[in-house]
Write a protein that binds this DNA or RNA. Structure first.
Lengths: 126, 126
DNA sequence: AATATAACGCAACCTTGTTGCATTAACAAA
DNA sequence: TTTGTTAATGCAACAAGGTTGCGTTATATT
């Protein structure tokens, strides 16, 4: 498990996530880069970058898969489980930096939490 | 907007949600009832029951749409935004009764929150 | 430069969910 | 209880996001 070859697709996709500090959906990436790279390639590179702990993914509104850069994750563990914010006006999604304290639930083991907050972002908020 | 006719499909689907106190995915309902009712019908009835404030929906793992009974919702407002718990062992999903306090986010307006917690449920937890 | 094989492109496919339209059935009124 | 209106249904075809198999290309190693 590892990105072993620095291909064009890997390079271009990584640049996307480095220049934009927001999350990007696979769909948007395909719309944007689909002429340059096959969608299969894009999906596979995203998968691999996630495996390697470089990107993390989550589900946005309507079940679309979004990706964003990781902070301090390794290929063995994704440890930046944080909320995501999706603007209902402009559609933009980004990562929030705080963590939400959850109450202990008796007899259950929490492994993953996915918190998606929807509303109006800074730019769309009047 | 309202369920104006008590049809077989409405009756059977409502019974599903009344006898099981857990959430059920549209997919599971189609697998279970697809011989009796057309999947289109099932999707439409679920839609309508949600419009009427009888069911609420949310996205589970893998972007599947899940439905569960509402508590005190009306056709104009779904006000039971609560976390959902999905067991990674048995796949079962249910509604949690607590609410999670979110920190205020400056310059943003929170409208909806979707919190999906994944882990081991009471039965699968050792 | 030769070579092994990861990565790619393409086409075909899968799944969840939606739409248009003709037919059926729920329910109110006669 | 028959009739008439129209909501609800079934069917087929479609839509969109994503996946798979396989032959070809290109990266990195020797």
């Amino acid at each position: 498990m590892g990105v072993i070859r620095k291909t064009k697709a890997v390079e271009v996709l990584l640049k996307e996530f480095n220049t934009n500090s927001v999350a990007i959906s696979a769909k948007a990436l395909i719309e944007q880069l689909g002429d340059t790279f096959n969608k299969t390639t894009i999906y596979r590179v995203l998968d691999k970058l996630e495996d390697d702990g470089i990107l993390h993914s989550f589900l946005g509104k309507e079940g679309l898969k979004w990706y964003a850069k990781c902070n301090g994750c390794t290929s063995t563990e994704h440890n930046d489980v944080h909320p995501h914010f999706q603007c209902l006006s402009c559609g933009r999604v980004d990562c929030l930096t705080f963590t939400v304290p959850l109450p202990k639930i008796p007899n259950r083991k929490i492994e993953v939490t996915q918190l998606l907050i929807q509303g109006k972002c800074e730019e769309c908020f009047v």
